Simulated scan of single mutants.
Amino acid sequence: MRKLILSATLVAASVFGMAGVQAAEPAKAGEQYIELSNPVPVSQPGKIEVVELFWYGCPHCYHFEPTLNPWVSKLPKDVNFKRVPAMFGGPWDAHGQMFLTLEAMGVEQKVHDAVFDAIQNQRKRLTDPQDMADFLATQGVDKDKFLSTFNSFAIKGQVQQAKALAKKYEITGVPSMVVNGKYRFDLGTAGGPDGVLSVADQLIAKERAK
């Protein structure tokens, strides 16, 4: 699994500078995206769901943020965007559990950029819960509440749910996107950050037309 993740990451790195190369091309199944053989139920029935699977320790996820976030902010009301942490063990699991904890506390959006910056630019590992709590306290997050939530039964259940989702989506690397539980694509297949959003737009329109 780790070799597959590394391979997908290297592919992403090789095309990251090709943003927009395929953006004008119609997205094709088996080329720009993969149609899942077993569709995954969406979290909000009645809305078109767009999922980004990511990891705070992934530099490509970090560099995708400036392209992704403005697009997310302009999504129409019939589209539900959500992030799902990919967890393949070790720091992936620790960071994923941190994300889910912050989301449960309702503060993830406020500290998302700071966590990414701490891990990617300040070289903080943030794999130990106490270290996470100490850092998050500098961002205004209650330390004791964070730790109690992090270790709660509810969060452990969400961790298992996120891992199960990643398996159902059949991802091998991050960042990966999934539209409406049916179509999966990434930087490599879509041709870079702008290509990813172009494919997402086309698949959203495809689902909306049904």
Rank of each mutant, 00 (worst) to 15 (best):
L4S: 09
L6D: 14
L6A: 13
S7Q: 12
T9H: 11
L10G: 02
V11N: 05
A13K: 13
M18D: 03
A19C: 08
Q22C: 12
E25K: 15
G30E: 10
E31C: 07
Q32C: 12
Y33P: 01
P39H: 07
V42A: 05
S43P: 04
Q44T: 13
K47E: 03
E52G: 03
W55S: 09
Y56G: 02
C58A: 06
H63G: 05
H63I: 15
F64S: 02
K74W: 08
K74D: 14
L75Q: 11
K77V: 08
V84I: 15
V84D: 00
M87C: 06
H95G: 04
G96S: 06
G96P: 11
M98Y: 05
F99G: 01
T101P: 04
L102R: 08
E103P: 01
A104M: 07
V111L: 04
D113C: 00
V115H: 06
V115P: 15
F116M: 15
D117R: 14
I119S: 08
I119V: 08
Q120M: 09
R123D: 14
K124W: 07
R125A: 15
D131Y: 03
M132V: 03
A137I: 12
T138H: 10
T138P: 03
K145S: 14
K145L: 12
K145H: 10
S148R: 14
N151L: 01
S152Q: 12
A154T: 12
G157L: 12
Q161C: 02
Q161N: 13
A162R: 07
L165R: 11
E170R: 13
E170Y: 06
I171T: 06
T172A: 11
P175F: 04
V179R: 00
V179Q: 00
N180M: 01
G181E: 06
T189V: 01
G191W: 07
D194L: 11
L197G: 03
S198N: 09
S198W: 15
D201T: 01
I204T: 02
